[in-house]
Design a protein around this nucleic acid. Sequence first.
DNA 1: CCAACATTTAGCAATTACGCTAAATGTTTG
DNA 2: CAAACATTTAGCGTAATTGCTAAATGTTGG
Lengths: 100, 100
Amino acid sequence: MPKPGAPRPDAYEALFIALAHPARRHILMTLNFEGGDMIAGDIASLFAHAWPTTTRHLKVLEDAGLVRHERQGRERVYRLDHRQLALARDWLDWFFKPTS
Amino acid sequence: MPKPGAPRPDAYEALFIALAHPARRHILMTLNFEGGDMIAGDIASLFAHAWPTTTRHLKVLEDAGLVRHERQGRERVYRLDHRQLALARDWLDWFFKPTS
DNA sequence: CCAACATTTAGCAATTACGCTAAATGTTTG
DNA sequence: CAAACATTTAGCGTAATTGCTAAATGTTGG
């Protein structure tokens, strides 16, 4: 929720901020390992943190476009979205390409 | 996932935090574009920020291992260090490899 | 409909991040 | 040696982040 007139954070900013927290990287790695989707409760149980703390991490990931979620009954299923991961990887890859 | 034998689990934290700020990504891109090294003053002049603000960004980058510096007369030359960039890229690349 | 369940939202406290200005440090030159 | 230069360090204020607990929301089953 950018304040009115606030500088618009570029797409990469939210992305790298999201990747910066160990818990969030852990979520992404586990999601990937588990085939791409998990319900919120199973994600929360990865951590010693209180559940609402994980909920907020999930929100940061989702705002960055790294995961999406859908309802399934009373559970919520979070799914990896690889597109932003690819974006970050490509940004980094640039440093290893011949300067054209 | 982290490579086995990768540096302390959270070399990644400092790394992604460093990459998260637009000014710091700007510094890295400019360094790369300019062939890998620049003096502090030229880096500072990229920004509307006060110089000490940039000095601190450089410190964050250096603490993350993304740049190093050496003295040269009364100037300081900052140089890109590609190794941590490669580390971050490889971490991301994991998500695009068959889960082995 | 009501209780139990799965999860999020609200709001608080501690910590860290990032901008600034002023002062300090180290280097070169007259 | 002193003045000028290049840059960093110190310290301050504000805003954001991250953890917590308590309360709210939406869903299902009896």
